[in-house]
Nucleic acid binder design. Structure first.
Ligand code: MG
Length: 543
DNA sequence: TGTGTCACG
DNA sequence: ACGTACGTGACACAT
């Protein structure tokens, strides 16, 4: 089946027609006026097959129709089979059926063609999934998750536009002032937002650096890392950084989010993509709700504009603590790390104590900061160079730290080697639930290309298993909410965090039960931990 | 359309 | 000698 909508922005689309394929080569198309004749068939237990079913479920839901029965999404199925390939229906039809999708000017013919193709492709995808042992991942995780995501998207998020409106005025004023100051210091006017012009002003005209770093296209690099190093000596660099921050926040969030509010219900509705991220994570777009600022003072005010739907509700956020490092400890069976997590110790302080060979009590904040970067670097397969760049130390010092790390955490080193060797043997790596990432570049003779594949071999099982786990938690939480007929709604997922619009009467219950369901989503050699907080807005709902 | 940059986990 | 820590999406600019 497939529902077609118009292309209205935000959540303001309207359903046009729905096509139903019932046997190979036999499909019917109904206008929205006639959908009522499909009501029972849609609600029934027959498996619903389609490409991008979430979009169809939402289109039908807006017309007041609910879909029952199991789901089979051909796009998501192919994503499990070959995550980084194109999952376009036309390509799948060509690959599995040996046919070209007929592109007609008649939207009715097109949608019937697509519904028919999806129905026919299903058996091929089912066979492929079975051969990879991914049937359970498909039927027990990804397919039920479609309904959960559809419900979250349908529910939407409330934005305090008044707050953002105030910020927009302030940001405009601030960046206007900064622009004037930058022109003054540069002795000329130019477009600060043009990296090309900016680089020429800073490094040709003002000669702030003898050997300015260039990008791969030969322009001067003017990224945050470079400007931060200049900022101590040159006031203009600091001003440019401030200007950039203001413009980023204004142009990406403050001025955009209010325009994304739906006329339908006054809320913002993201679109979670379930077949994009190579590791198994979700992504979020239109708008992206997974990169809402939090790290800076101005950023935090944007997050404060994410509020509960009314006076009867609050925002609750629950997030996993160090889930990726816990998974690394589990995969490596690292006794030191497992012990630290078991005893609820601070993992970065523990790492610092081992790497810098001091007592836990002797760990300084600088040692902890460095150890934290080392722990992240490990998850990403970092080299000494990368670590040095990232914490602003010499490559020699970074190499020493890494050497000390692998001496203390030799099982982590072994995990990394094992993972790379697994990839060399199978040309893929896999997660806890059997999700794969193919790494055919692992045999590349180009060391840069091969290096990427090796780092992916280390990182993908960790990042992907964390994605598996939060998906399981989401399924369990939604099931619980439904079973208990609760009023509160899950409204966002941000990789290791779940956000809820909770009814005040249910706040304590959710505070108790949501973290519990997150921690118990899987049983591992380490306990998972989740923190939870409730507030009037999203920023407040963080520890 | 590609590039550089930067917001998040 | 070269490139160099994972995964995303969105914006402005330049072509
Ligand atoms: Mg966390």
């Amino acid at each position: 089946m497939e529902a077609v909508t118009n292309e209205a922005p935000n959540f303001d689309f309207e359903t046009k027609v729905v096509a139903i394929a019932i046997a190979p080569g036999e499909a019917y198309c109904l206008s929205k006026e006639n959908l009522k004749y499909l009501k029972d068939a849609l609600a029934g237990e027959a498996v619903k097959v389609g490409h991008q079913l979430k979009a169809s479920l939402l289109a039908l839901r807006k017309e007041g129709f609910d879909c029952g029965g199991p789901l089979f999404d051909t796009q998501v199925a192919h994503y499990l089979i070959e995550p980084e390939a194109s999952h376009e229906l036309s390509i799948l039809a060509n690959q599995y059926l040996g046919t070209q999708l007929i592109e007609s000017y008649d939207p009715v013919k097109n949608v019937c063609e697509r519904a028919d193709a999806a129905l026919q492709i299903k058996k091929h995808l089912t066979r492929e999934l079975e051969s990879r042992n991914q049937t359970n991942l498909m039927t027990a995780v990804e397919m039920p998750l479609i309904r959960v995501l559809a419900e979250m998207e349908f529910e939407g998020v409330t934005i305090d536009t008044g707050k953002l409106g105030d910020m927009s005025d302030e940001l405009k004023k601030d960046s206007q002032r900064l622009q004037g100051e930058i022109f003054e210091m540069a002795g000329m006017e130019f477009n600060i937002a043009s990296p090309k012009q900016l680089g020429e002003v800073l490094f040709d005209k003002m000669r702030l650096l003898d050997k300015a770093k260039k990008t791969k296209t030969g322009q001067y690099a003017t990224g945050e890392d470079i400007l931060t190093k200049l900022a101590g000596e040159h006031e203009i660099a600091k001003k440019i950084l401030d200007f950039r921050e203001d413009e980023k926040l204004r142009s990406t969030y403050v001025d955009v989010l209010p325009r994304m509010i739906s006329r339908f219900d006054g809320r913002v509705h993201t679109d979670y993509r379930q077949a994009v991220a190579a590791t198994g994570r979700l992504s979020s777009n239109n708008p992206n709700l997974q990169n809402i600022p939090i790290r800076t003072g101005k950023g935090k005010r944007i997050r404060e504009a994410f509020v509960a739907r009314d006076k009867e509700h609050l925002i609750l956020s629950a997030d996993y603590s160090q889930i990726e490092l816990r998974l690394a400890a589990v995969f490596a069976k690292d006794a030191t790390m497992l012990e630290a997590f078991k005893n609820g110790r601070d993992i970065h302080t523990t790492t610092a104590s081992k790497v810098f060979k001091v007592d836990i009590k002797e760990v300084t904040s600088d040692m902890r900061r460095k150890a934290k970067e080392v722990n992240f670097g490990i998850l990403y397969g970092s080299t000494a160079f990368g670590l040095a760049q990232n914490i602003g130390i010499s490559k020699t010092e970074a190499a020493e730290i890494i050497e000390a790390y692998f001496k203390e955490f030799s099982t982590i080193k072994k995990y990394m080697d094992d993972s790379i060797n697994f990839a060399r043997e199978h040309e893929y790596v896999e997660t806890l639930l059997g999700r794969r990432r193919y790494l055919r570049d692992i045999h590349s003779r180009n060391q840069t290309t091969r290096g990427f594949a090796e780092r992916n071999a280390i990182n993908a099982p960790i990042q992907g298993s964390a994605a598996d786990i939060i998906k399981l938690a989401m399924l369990n939480i939604q099931q619980w909410v439904k079973q208990e007929k609760l009023k509160s709604k899950m409204i966002m997922q941000v990789h290791d965090e779940l956000v809820f619009d909770v009814h005040k009467e249910e706040a304590d219950l959710f505070k108790e039960h949501v973290p519990w369901l997150m921690k118990t989503a899987v049983q591992l050699d380490v306990t998972l931990d989740a923190e939870v907080a409730v507030a009037e807005n999203w920023f407040g709902a963080h520890g």
